[in-house]
Structures are given as C-alpha cells and as structure tokens.
C-alpha cells in the first residue's frame, strides 16, 4: 500500500512538473503550448545522450536536460511567438503543433523509431540499489526522481515569491503594460518565462526517461496530454493547482492498476479528470477567472 503510494507520487510528481511548465507559460504568455510533450522528449534524450556517451551521472544528465530545454524554449519564443504576440490565439497554437512535429521528426532522424534504453551495466547502480523506509524498499532512482521533482517545485515557488526576476514575471503576468511602464523589458520576460516553463518539461522528461529507462521519439505525446489535462484541472493558471492535480492523477493511476487491467490506466486517468471537471468546471484552484488576469 505504502509502496504503491510512493509509486503514485513519483509518477504524479512528473505530471506535476510538466503541468507546472504549462501553467507558468500560460499564466504569463496567455498561450497554450502543444509542443510541451516534445520538449519533454528532448529533455529525456539530452539526459540519455550525456549519460551513455559522456559520463554516467544522473546529475549531469539533469543538467544537460535543463540547458537544452531552456535554450530550446528561448529559441521557440524568440523565433515564433514574439512575432505572433498580437496575432489570434490559434496562430500560436498552430505554431506549437508545428514545433511538436518538427521535434518528433528530428528525434526520429537522429535516434530512429526504436525504443532506446540505457545499458544495464550503466544504470544498475541507480536502479537496483535500494534503501529501506520502514517496511518497504525504495530504489535510489525512484527516490532521486521524487526528490528532484520536489526540489524543483520548491525552488520554483521560492523563485517566484522572493526573487527580483520572479516578482517581475508575476507583475508582467498581471499587467504587462504596467510592467513596461516600470521599464521592464517585457519581451525578455516572455522569453525567460517560456524557457523556464520548457525547462520544467525537460527535467520531467529526463526523470521519467531514467525512471522507466525507455527513450523513444513519441514518449512525450501521452504525457504531454495528461499534463495539460492536469494543468486544466488545477485551474490552468494556478501553480499549486497544477501540482496537486498532477500528484492526484499519478496516485489514481497507480492505484487503479489494483482494480482494473493496467492497459486501462490512461483511460482511468482521463475519466478521473473528466469527473473532476464535471464537478468543478473552473478547475481545482481556478477562480472561474484567470488568476493573474488584469485587475481592472
């Protein structure tokens, strides 16, 4: 039971990280990105490449994912979204779908369609050394995934609450014209925010890639969809909402396997989300109105 809960929370923390990325990007740029799942995949592959070719260190793999997806996010924002800021919403939505296709195809070209895995001799140290917590054994890898996810979430909260840049990002989200009047370079804030949100996706990608030791070009599709749903359930612009919803979905999914065939787990997750939205259409933490929307 406790073991299952840990499994669920681990899975859920990944959803939460991804959902948090969606939420941050949406909260500031008022834009939904459908390339988030593919950024996640890029993060996973960056970690994979560094781990298998450079040095088998999980920390280094995470750093690789952070750097790659941060830059990728910044690039996407500068190349595409800056030009479309005043365009109708569906234009940028289409562009994000375009990005997702391009990234998937690139991964197919570079890595091929078959599933890659880190060779056993390299990962066994991480995956098979366990520590005991009470009655149960938890692998170092699982603990690392959960630990890193929690750490990143906590750091994100502190960053937005207390740092100078974090405050400016919140200010820009609430009223970007007023921010401009203070001399904030709003374009730069948008770029940093998109990069930051993408980076959250990238970290989630490297964590789950290592957790399951599976890497393939379409690995982000289902996860991106689920994380987007988690973000919607959380209230779309609410960071605590994204985290709670992400964790809930992970736990529900893992526990559902006890009752139904495991191939139904995705279905269960979506039915669960559908049920929540029937009860609270505005999402768990949504106020019916976007949090961070203009005040007047």
């Amino acid at each position: 039971m406790f073991e299952q809960l840990i499994n669920g929370l681990t899975q859920g923390s990944i959803y939460a990280l991804l959902a948090l990325g969606f939420t941050i990007i949406f909260g500031v740029l008022r834009m939904v990105t459908f390339a988030h799942g593919e950024v996640f995949m890029v993060g996973a592959y960056s970690g994979f490449v560094v781990f298998t070719h450079l040095q088998d260190s999980l920390v280094l793999a995470i750093v690789a994912a952070v750097v790659t997806t941060f830059l990728l996010g910044a690039l996407m924002e500068i190349v595409a979204f800056r030009r479309l800021r005043d365009a109708p919403h569906f234009s940028s939505l289409l562009v994000t779908i375009g990005f997702s296709v391009v990234l998937t195809q690139l991964a197919l070209l570079i890595f091929g369609a078959e599933v890659e895995a880190i060779p056993m001799r390299q990962i066994e140290g991480l995956a098979f050394s366990e520590i005991r917590i009470g009655e149960v054994y938890v692998s170092y890898l699982q603990l690392s995934v959960l630990g890193v996810a929690i750490l990143i979430m906590a750091a994100t909260f502190l960053f937005f609450k207390y740092s100078r840049l974090g405050t400016a990002i919140r200010a820009t989200a609430q009223d970007h014209e007023a921010a401009m009047a203070m001399g904030v370079d709003v374009n730069r804030i948008f770029t940093v925010t998109f990069a930051f949100g993408s980076m959250m996706g990238g970290i989630a990608g490297v964590l789950i890639g290592f957790y399951y030791n599976l890497f393939y070009p379409t690995m982000g599709v289902m996860l991106g969809l689920k994380a987007f749903s988690a973000a919607v359930i959380g209230g779309l612009a609410s960071m605590p909402g994204a985290i709670v919803a992400g964790l809930m979905i992970g736990v529900v999914e893992v526990f559902s396997v006890d009752f139904v065939n495991s191939s139904f787990r995705h279905l269960i997750a979506f039915v669960f989300m559908f049920a929540i939205l029937l009860i609270r259409p505005q999402g768990l933490f949504g106020s019916g109105q976007l949090r961070g929307a203009r005040g007047d």
Partner: peptide
C-alpha cells in the same frame, strides 16, 4: 508614468 486607472499589479 503614472498610468491611467492606476494599473496596480493587483496580486503583488
């Protein structure tokens, strides 16, 4: 500038 309608950052 002090913008029209004050334009606070309402949640800050």
């Amino acid at each position: 500038p002090v913008l029209e309608r004050r334009r606070m950052f309402p949640q800050l």
